[in-house]
Design a protein around this nucleic acid. Structure first.
Lengths: 237, 237
DNA sequence: GCTTTAAATCTGGTTAACCAATTTTTAAGT
DNA sequence: ACTTAAAAATTGGTTAACCAGATTTAAAGC
């Protein structure tokens, strides 16, 4: 297990080195938006790494929108000049792993927005899906079972109803880690869940009534309890 | 060009199919958190696709935190039960590509938060980096040159100073596409840039003074002009 | 000298074979 | 029977060879 982790970290380290070198190359060659990068084979030779490693680094830069690979043609720098490229690569390399606090902080921010947008834009279908998630949660809680999953599916249904694909995507990205941490610290125990039903209902009603202010307030109330709970955990851990 | 796009879409389509089938499998076999998935080879045979395709699908699910591959051991379902797994896979498959409106909407939301956090948490180093970005922007604008890149690096410096790695990451993800769209629609022309200098300065001063309310207000002012501009573009395009 | 065509080269993507570590099975020892 | 050890099978990861399409080069035709 130790070795496995070590090799994974090593692999990430070489990837970071390659990303850095690609950045230097773009600087050195003064590559403008749309210009072609040297081929993967040349880069692997130049950097003295395998082509797989080069591909990995390029894929990461592609994810962040800095490069674009076109099959049978080449890899091109995106519509971003040298200056932004440098800044962003530096930031990407220095990016820290998300911790629980940053996740919760971000989640609250996102959801106070998605619930507002959902109340404004929700279709009848959206409302139905949210209602289903709400019922599933209530049913599970009343049976006295753990309902963390149903809880978060309710929140994801709201994110979907927001009609904002970027916010929806971001919610999907952070949700699993939120769940993991919740279960790790035993957030959302049964007493909290009981209260959760009422709070969820209040949020649902506000979305149904298409009242954005009320929706946001009810979500805030919902998070207030949760945040207190998380904060106490954090201090004691 | 047409063919190239077609194959990429095809490839994504098969990946979606595989993701869906993996979801069904988890349901059918009632796999709980921590359980092992069948091996990549078995899945590729069962689904009648190449192992590469299976790997791609698994990697995507790994990105969203639903699976975890451990070398020489297997692929395991994350600490998320069947119900959340189903819901999330469904959401991921239905996720739409981000459009300009959702990007701008999300950016404004994120930045009203990062600027507030930055004013509270910024170190002296952070402040210096923000100042550097500010100077670079001003210098470029006063020379009458395009300064979209420097503009966004200023905003990224603030995101970094927020001390929230998740928010910072999200800002990095949306920034390139924002830049692309800005240049596409010629947002941030020279007249706007002149005004931008003053607005950036006001934001910087508030962060320096560690005044979160003022910082947020100044950022709001800054976006107000921008949002109007973008909205007009959207209507006319 | 210019255009057109064909051949050679170069590109990112894919795949089958291989690797090292793990896990399971088998068998040996007591 | 139980423990231990060793060997066989299985695992995700890696790599070198291959692929099809794009690009460049060369040459042929006029």
């Amino acid at each position: 297990m130790k070795l496995e982790v070590a090799t994974k970290i090593d692999s990430l380290d070489t990837q970071k080195t390659i990303i850095s070198k690609i950045g230097e190359l773009i600087n050195f060659k003064n590559l403008e938006p749309g210009d072609k990068l040297p081929s993967e084979r040349m880069l692997s030779e130049k950097f003295e790494v395998t082509r797989s490693n080069v591909r990995g680094a390029i894929q990461k830069l592609e994810f962040y929108g800095l490069l674009e690979s076109i099959p049978q043609s080449g890899t091109f720098v995106a519509n971003i000049g040298v200056i932004a490229m440098n800044g962003m690569i530096e930031d990407i390399l220095k990016l820290e792993d998300p911790n629980f606090k940053s996740l919760v902080e971000t989640r609250i921010l996102l959801e106070l927005k998605t619930v507002r947008l959902a109340s404004l834009r929700r279709t009848d279908e959206d409302l139905e899906r949210i209602k289903e998630a709400l019922d599933a949660y209530e049913k599970k809680v009343l049976k006295g079972e753990d309902a963390v999953q149903e809880d978060l599916l309710f929140h994801l249904a709201i994110a979907k109803a927001s009609g904002n694909s970027t916010l929806n995507n971001f919610m999907l990205i952070i949700t699993p880690e939120i769940i993991t941490n919740f279960e790790k610290y035993h957030v959302c125990d049964k007493s909290l869940s009981r209260q959760g039903i009422e709070e969820h209902n209040a949020i649902f009603d506000a979305i149904k009534k298409q009242d954005p202010k009320l929706a946001k307030q009810k979500m805030k109330d919902h998070f207030n309890v949760l945040y207190q709970y998380c904060y106490n955990i954090k201090k004691s851990s």
